[in-house]
Structures are given as C-alpha cells and as structure tokens.
Design a protein around this nucleic acid. Structure first.
Lengths: 224, 224
DNA sequence: TCAAAAGTGTTTGTGGTACACCCATGG
DNA sequence: CCATGGGTGTACCACAAACACTTTTGA
C-alpha cells in the first residue's frame, strides 16, 4: 500500500483573480490556445511542480498572469470529479485572489490572450470553471460581510466615498452614507493619511487600511 | 504542456470524523501499522482511486472506519506542502465528517486499531494531521454558529435539554435555557415528535430536526 | 455664485440578554 | 411527599436603521 502502487492523478492549481473595475466585479480569464477546449475562456492555472507548495504554485500563476505579487490569496476548493478534464484524471486546487482596483493587466508572460470579464456577463468557460467562478463569487460576497477582505480590492489610498462605492458594488445594494462612515470609523480598520484628493466638488481626505486591524467580526448566532 | 509531461504527486483524502461523546467533542483516529510514522495516531484516509470523485473517496474511507453512510461530510482544506509526507509528494484533500452521538465504532474493516480521542487531549499525530484536526475544530465552531450543522452530531430524536447541552459543549460556554428555547423555536429548524422520553424527573418531549429547514443566518456585517 | 461632492448627529425601533418560578413524574 | 429535570414570560439595554442640511472647493 505504498504511494507508488496507485496510478496518480495530475494536480493543477487554478486562480480565480477578481478585481473591481468599471463599477463592477470582474474576473481575469485567459483564452485557451491548446486542446482541450481550445479557444474557450478559462480560469488561469497550471500544473503544480513537485517541489513547490500549492500556494506557491498559485502565486506563480498569479504573477505570470498579472505581474502582481503581494495580493490577497486564499484556497477556495478542490475540484476532482473524474471526467472534469478530457485528458484524464486531473484534480484542481482552486484559489481566489483579490487584486487592487486600477490594475492594467495586459501582457502576461504567455502569449495567451487574457482579459477582464464582468462577473455578470461571462462567456462559456472551459472545464468546470463556471462552477469555480460562481463559488468564488459566493465566497467573496459572504466573506466581505464579516471580514475586511474588501480592502484588498482597493488601491492603498482611497476616499470614504470610494470605499462606500466599492462595498455597494460588492454587496449589490446601496448603503447609508452616515451609518457607513460611523461604523467604519468605529471599527478602527482604516486610518487617515495626510493627503487630500481634489476633483470635482469638495476635496476628500484619503484613508488607508490599517494592516494591524483585527478585522473579523463574530457571526450572528443562529441560536445562542 | 500535456498532463503527462509533469511528474505527478500522489493524492489522498483524509477524513476528520467528529462526534459528541461523554460530554465532549471527540475525533476518530487510527493507529498507523506501517511506516512512515508507524505506531503514531493519524486521521483516517487513503489514496484516491482514479475512477472515484474526491467526495466518494472520502465517503468510502468514512464507511470503512465507521460503517455509517448517511452523514454530514464537507471538504475542509487541501494540504500539499512538499515534505509533509516522507514518502514523497503527497497532496491530501481533507474532509470533515459529523456523525451522530451514540456511535459505537469498533471493528473497522481494517485490522488497524481505531478509537475516539477527546479534542482537548490529543496524542502526537502523524504527518501534519494536528494542523488538520485544529482546522476542522475551528471550522466546526465557526460554522455551528450560523448554520444548523450541530444537529448532525445528535441522534434523530432528542430533547431540548440534550440539544442545549450539545450546543454548550460545542461552543464551550453555558447558555440560558429560556433564551435558547425561544430562539430555537423561532428559527423553525426543529419540530416536535409525538414521543416523550421518561427518565429521572419530569419526562421531556422529543424533537427532530426539520430537513426542510433553511438553517443559515446571514452573518452580522462588519460595516453595513 | 453655482454645481458637485464631502462631511456631520439625533431619534426611533428591534433584537439580545438577564433573570425566577411552577410543573410533571418516579421513587 | 420529595427529588429531579422540564417547561414558561418579562423588563431593560445596546446597537442598527432612518433621515437632511452645511461645508468646501473649482469652474
């Protein structure tokens, strides 16, 4: 019953890379230039090297596609149904990555075509990647409510209005300005910077996320 | 870049089987009778067959160890650091299973020794299984607060006192009897049966979990 | 001086928490 | 009739939600 007695599946990592662009949530997809599903859009990913951890593999893929390094990355789910890949048994460990808003991707190291897609208007996807993207979205919506991952979709500095707007987009509902500001200040997860952003109308103070913030809240209990 | 160009890791599933026994949370461990870590206790698991899904493999392991079939099973996390198994690269997809309270295990199909261990008094574990068990416990505590998975640790019929006791054990804190009863009835997740359990003192009505119950509550928002 | 966005408190309602006594049965 | 666990209602407090006007700048 040693490991080598069994035929082995292949193992890949796929990274659902999500950002906030053009007032909506978008996901980065690549066009496959090889069979199977040649020409279809897919979540970027690749085989795990034998000497790297799963997270390292995910960061490598992420870096190859976007050039960014220090971003939020979390394991999402492992997909392993037989038959999900026509090449044979392939088990895929999916990750979710959140990258800051104004990221111009273009020019991954591959020649593959890559572009952002609105999460509400996705093309047909290769493999079981539609399930993967849906799960990532569910998890993000869920997690954003009780933790501070939302900040990982914003640039380092932002105004309170931009922050509120981001939350409205992610949650899909409008929020009250005064309640939002009060609560976010009470939560002590952001701190003011010395900078001001001018634009149309009155200039706004810029804030940044406090890295030391304890940004999790206990869930409301179903029955205490 | 075909799948076969890469050397492949082995893939296993491990199942953290949790139950409620002797007024505490316990986990089922097996004593390894082969190297590596021969003689150490470990989370039950095994290699994934090429023609079965990950969940099927997990249910197979679960059934081999406990004989039970229809229990709560959920994917927990995939552990894949190189070096976590001295035999070579082994990636393990961990599942968490909740089995109903009065389960007498004994006599798995293997000859391996298996027994329940209190989660607060674990022996040294093989591989990275200590991390695995800790993660399972964290997830259970967390999940129990906003969903109804707690019922999966109870037999089909139970009294309200038994249910409250179970919640107190899982959450690790005492609960108020009247508040608990009011809230659980309002949640409409259980229904009374026609049966009564007699014992010492006044007999208690038996309840059962409503399978149709929508038993998730929205998390309290960090900032709305 | 006007347009545009930033910023700022109070009131009201709901839900969470704390708390003590009577009831039904078996021995 | 007594011991044991089962079952029930109310009062207070804290936090969430609703709501409108003043301020600062650039054009």
């Amino acid at each position: 019953m040693a490991a080598s007695d069994y035929p082995k599946p292949s193992v890949t990592v796929d990274v659902v890379i999500i950002t906030l662009r053009a007032e909506e949530l978008q996901v980065l997809l690549v066009k496959r230039d090889l069979a199977p599903y040649k020409g279809r859009w897919a979540v970027p990913g690749g085989f795990v090297h034998l000497d790297e951890s799963l997270e390292t593999a995910a960061r490598r893929e992420l870096h190859e596609e976007t050039g960014v390094a220090d971003v939020y990355l979390e394991q999402l789910y492992t997909f392993g149904d037989p038959g999900r890949d026509p090449r044979g048994r392939v088990i895929s460990v999916a990750y979710i990555a959140l990258v800051p808003a104004p990221l111009t991707v273009e020019a991954g190291s591959d020649a593959r075509e890559a572009r952002w897609w609105s999460l509400s208007k996705l093309p047909p996807l290769a493999f079981d990647h539609d399930k993967m993207v849906q799960l990532a979205l569910t998890r993000l919506r869920y997690k954003i409510e009780y933790s501070a991952v939302g900040f990982r979709l914003l640039p380092e500095c932002f105004t309170l209005s931009e922050l509120q707007k981001a939350y409205e987009i992610i949650l899909g509902e409008p929020l009250d300005k005064r309640n939002f500001r009060r609560r976010i200040m009470e939560a002590e997860v952001i701190e003011p910077t010395d900078d001001i952003r001018a634009g149309e109308g009155r200039p706004a103070r810029l804030y940044r996320f406090r890295r030391d913030a304890v940004a999790e809240v206990k869930a409301r209990r179903l029955f205490p």
